[in-house]
Design a protein around this nucleic acid. Structure first.
Lengths: 205, 205
DNA sequence: TGATAAAAAAGGAGCGTTCGTTTTCTTTTG
DNA sequence: CAAAAGAAAACGAACGCTCCTTTTTTATCA
């Protein structure tokens, strides 16, 4: 009975995720093809699919690497800091500290892709939902604390910072397509009407 | 002389961009299909392609709406503010103020998609490159000014904030595939080796 | 220990599907 | 009734993924 070492399997997985990670940083999740990943990993499709169920599975694994557990830890440490200045420093450190070596761009870029993907992909969002919650709470706490000390104008709404996280909320599905006057929205608008907002409230249900 | 008014053409374009905008907020740029956009706009593919050369063209137009010109203006106003607290308020306002109504999520989400897309799509990045430059300069200036006044610990590197914009830089293309030892990376790693960084420095050229 | 059989791993062509786009034909309009 | 606009169907390409084959590794036995 032949059996391969479990460490070898784990190493292969990491080889694939590492390749995917680089591809995602270059092109983003969706424009990256499985062939891109296979080429970067110097593996064939058949080999890759031995270790991962599909592309989505690889994305999930890559995101797991991007969102290291220590990230949240750093953030919470910063929040515990009683000095406001140190708090800001800690916050910045939590955001950027693990981007400070040569792998910087790859991690930074893939994290950005993840952030955008979470807004749009329910399964990814669920997998990493704990992180934005911590970030949201952390930002809000820092701003409020700074306001209490008078370092920031109390007129600045603390929730404004937290609203950066807002896009992670879900958006309603497309309408069920009842009777619809196609030109209604058009007629309502004047010629050079100021259209500060492209999307009507009605479109949000 | 069968010709439709120019205003009507402009309105149709806006109808399509508006539909695309909503789709992008729901699914992101790439998972959104042309059929999604057509369905949302209640138009056929042939009709859509009469007004736009292709999907990329629609993305560009939608991004143009997402990145309103007034955004940069607000940012520059904030930077001109001599008072540090007001500066912070202005900065937050520039970031989030035009997300404060019912269209909030749609704009916020699509802006997030754009941010991620810029990191990855050269043409989109070029079209909107002036914006991140202003943001980067603005963030750096604010932090430095706050440090000068002692509101933020001067030990905090001002560039750390600006590094949030770093992912917009380009990443090297995949290697030209010279001779390659497939297992080199595997042998080098120990069993439970601490792999703080998944991607090797060598992978970045 | 060397030869051999069995099992796992990797290769690579190709499957069905779906995408962006084009083409053809019908409807509407000035 | 010309000419523009829109609908509908369909095209070629490219995608994720599977299947079958070949190669490599591991365990068994003389």
């Amino acid at each position: 009975m032949p059996k391969v070492s479990e460490a070898h399997v784990e190493a292969r997985k990491e080889q694939i995720v590492s390749a995917a990670f680089l591809c995602f940083a270059r092109k983003g999740f969706h424009p990256t093809t499985m062939q891109d990943i296979c080429a970067e990993a110097h593996l064939s499709p058949g080999a890759v699919y031995r270790y991962f169920a599909g592309k989505e599975d690889i994305i999930q694994s890559a995101c797991g690497e991007a969102q290291a557990a220590e990230y949240v830890g750093l953030l919470e440490e910063a929040l515990a800091e009683p000095d406001t200045s140190a708090m800001f420093s800690g916050l910045a450190a939590a955001f950027f500290s693990h981007f400070d070596d040569d792998g910087a761009d790859v991690y930074n870029r893939t994290s950005l892709q993840l952030w955008a993907e979470m807004a749009v992909n329910e399964r990814v969002r669920e997998s990493f939902s704990s992180n934005p919650a911590a970030v949201r709470a952390g930002l809000d706490a820092v701003v409020r604390e700074a306001q209490r000390r008078g370092d920031i104008d109390s007129g600045l709404e603390s929730g404004a910072v937290a609203s950066a996280i807002r896009p992670l909320r879900r958006l309603p599905a497309p309408e069920g397509d009842g009777p619809h006057d196609r030109h209604a929205g058009l007629r309502a608008r004047g010629r050079g009407a100021a259209r500060r907002h492209l999307v009507d409230r009605s479109a949000l249900a």
